[in-house]
Every structure is written in structure tokens, then in C-alpha cells.
């Protein structure tokens, strides 16, 4: 059972205090978008074995959504950060690169 630190309230919350919310940094495609864009927004998920960015809500705590960078294979957590970002912050990216030199990077 994971522990993730909520970047808003600083609680190191265990998984039962959190709600998962699928892949992070999806770009919304609304009316007027192509079928391909809409499909990728709604359905195409990376689901990698390895470095992954995902959404969590501190639902039994402050109620805020936050994002986590995590290795899906080893469950190593590279960091958590606020949801109000459209891509992983540089310090998290640097930490991942230090731990996973072979990582091809975000996107």
C-alpha cells in the first residue's frame, strides 16, 4: 500500500486516504476537435511499465488533487506536485533522470 505526500497539506497519506485518478497531464479536446484528438484524450493511455505520471486526490484529507511521478514496476516515488501544472516540474524530471538514466523523458 503506497504512501504519497500531499503537496498541499504535507500529509504523508497512505493509499486508503487517497483516491486514484488515472493518467496525469492529459490535454482536453472539446467541441471542434478531430476524432483522433478526442479519441486520444478519452481513451489512449500510456500505461507504462516504469516511470508514470498520475493523478491522486487527497480525498480523506484536504480534498485536493495532486500529481505523482512513480515507477509502476518498483513503486518508487519520484515526487508529488500540485495539479495546476501542464507538465512535470523540472526538479521532478531531474530526480527521475538521476534514478532512471534510461528514461526517455516525458511525452
Amino acid at each position: 500500500m503506497l504512501i504519497l505526500e500531499c503537496p498541499y497539506c504535507g500529509v504523508k497519506a497512505e493509499e486508503t486516504e487517497l483516491s486514484p485518478g488515472h493518467e496525469a497531464h492529459l490535454k482536453r479536446f472539446g467541441p471542434g476537435s478531430s476524432d483522433e484528438d478526442f479519441e486520444s484524450y478519452m481513451f489512449a493511455r500510456k500505461n507504462p511499465k516504469g516511470v508514470h505520471f498520475e493523478r491522486w486526490r487527497h480525498s480523506y484529507g484536504c480534498g485536493k488533487w495532486f500529481l505523482a511521478a512513480r515507477c509502476t514496476a518498483t513503486l518508487e516515488v519520484f515526487g508529488t506536485y500540485p495539479a495546476q501544472t501542464s507538465e512535470p516540474p523540472p526538479d521532478i524530471v531531474a530526480r527521475i533522470k538521476a534514478r532512471r538514466p534510461e528514461w526517455e523523458g516525458y511525452k
Partner: peptide
Amino acid sequence: HAHMEDWLQCEWW
């Protein structure tokens, strides 16, 4: 309520 907060926090923050 969670749905509303999701959109407010994560899309139209």
C-alpha cells in the same frame, strides 16, 4: 462534488 472539484482544480484552475 468530487467531479466538480476535479474540474475546478485540474482543468479550470
